Amino acid sequence: MPRTAPGGILPVFQTPLHDDESIDFETLSREIAWLYDQGADGIVMAMVSETLRLSSEERDELARQACGFGRERGQVVISVGAESTRVAIRHAEHAERSGATAMMAIPPVATACDPADLLVYFRALLKATSIPLIVQDASGYVGRPLPIGMLADLLGEYGSERILFKPEATPIGPRLSALRDATKGEAKVFEGSGGIALVDSYRRGIVGTMPGADLITAIIALWKALEAGNEARVTRIGSLLTDIVSLQCGLDGFLAVEKHLLVKQGVFTSTRVRGPVGFHLDDETRREVDRRFEALMAAVQSN
């Protein structure tokens, strides 16, 4: 039987690397424990975990270790998307064997699949496993927006305990509402903008958020303020969160800033990212990130 569908605050962990670019599993364990200690409901291995820059064997080992470090304390979602259905199934089966709470899948990014082929791809993952699937529209980074009608069809086939969604195509808010309305409010949706669209998405009915690991303290404070209806605190934290996330340009921008802030908070010892990369954190941007981070943390700590 499928496991209970995930929800709440599920940060996407960053993958720490040694100088030789091998995975630093000791630091990963510390990062995951730190995320749970801050109040996260679970963890996610996804694109900003650098999955697209890992070999299949490395992805398997990262998934196995993440499940081992995290599953006793909460939910663990593992990204399984790949360029072929066969490889995606391999990752999906491995994620389930490793103890994942759910899997998440982007569609192939190098192929302009039509909706019929995408349905075959996602159905194959569901057939091969029994855990919930979060369909990730990662077109904010790569690929093309997923058709709303296709997503509604999947939900109609499998139900909201087996199929969930992480829509990232722009404009995020209107597309989120379109998915909600096309499914008569049954779609369970995660926000995935790093937090920049969290307030608007919350008001449109999301069941959770998948932010970066670096700003988890602020995300949790904002989520609690939203649930409490504390509009003054929502505005104060939300605007400062938007300020800092706006500096994270594209996937490599998120990688650079998030690893810098994890070092700043004593979680990581290195900001190394696997290259080639499309964004480097220069000194002036680093100082501005630090300034905005300090302002955000001051707002989080205030009453």
Rank of each mutant, 00 (worst) to 15 (best):
Y36E: 15
D41E: 11
T269Y: 12
A33Y: 15
D153I: 05
L133Q: 02
L261N: 14
V12G: 07
M104I: 07
T85K: 07
E284P: 01
R292F: 03
D283N: 14
A63C: 14
R30K: 15
R73H: 15
K259G: 06
S193R: 01
I89D: 04
R3A: 06
L261Q: 15
G156F: 09
D19F: 07
A197L: 00
T4Y: 00
R272S: 10
V257W: 05
A5R: 01
E61T: 02
T183N: 08
L241N: 04
Q301M: 13
Q38H: 15
L255Q: 07
R287E: 13
L119H: 11
V257T: 13
E284N: 10
I163F: 01
G99Y: 01
G192K: 11
P132I: 02
V234H: 05
E231W: 15
K224M: 04
V80E: 03
D243V: 05
A82Q: 06
E26Y: 08
Q265V: 10
W223T: 08
E157C: 06
S239W: 02
E157Y: 05
R64Q: 06
C67H: 04
G195M: 09
S270Q: 11
R86A: 08
T4E: 04
L241H: 09
L35F: 13
M210C: 13
I43Y: 11
G253P: 09
I244R: 11
K224Q: 12
P11Q: 07
T170R: 14
R71G: 01
A116V: 14
P167K: 12
S29W: 14
V142K: 06
T242Q: 09
I9L: 08
A299I: 13
R71P: 01
G7Y: 02
E96Y: 03
L281V: 08
F279Q: 06
W34V: 09
G195E: 04
I219K: 09
A40E: 10
I78E: 06
R233E: 13
Q65G: 05
F279A: 07
L118C: 09
V76Q: 11
F13V: 11
L154C: 10
D117G: 10
S98K: 00
L126E: 05
Q38F: 12
V277F: 10
H18P: 05
T209L: 02
L119K: 12
E258H: 11
S84G: 02
P6S: 03
T85M: 10
G250N: 10
A197Q: 03
I131T: 02
G81H: 06
G159R: 02
A46C: 14
D137Q: 09
A197P: 00
G7V: 00
R292I: 00
R292D: 00
V142H: 11
W34Q: 13
L146E: 12
R59A: 07
A110P: 00
Q38S: 15
G205Q: 02
K264V: 11
D60C: 03
N230F: 06
R233I: 08
F293Y: 15
E186N: 10
P211W: 04
A88M: 03
G250M: 03
E168V: 03
R236L: 12
V263D: 12
G143E: 09
T235P: 07
L281R: 10
K166W: 13
D252N: 15
E83I: 00
P107S: 10
R233W: 15
D243Y: 09
R97E: 04
E26F: 14
G205K: 01
S130G: 05
L119D: 12
R71W: 01
E96W: 02
P211V: 12
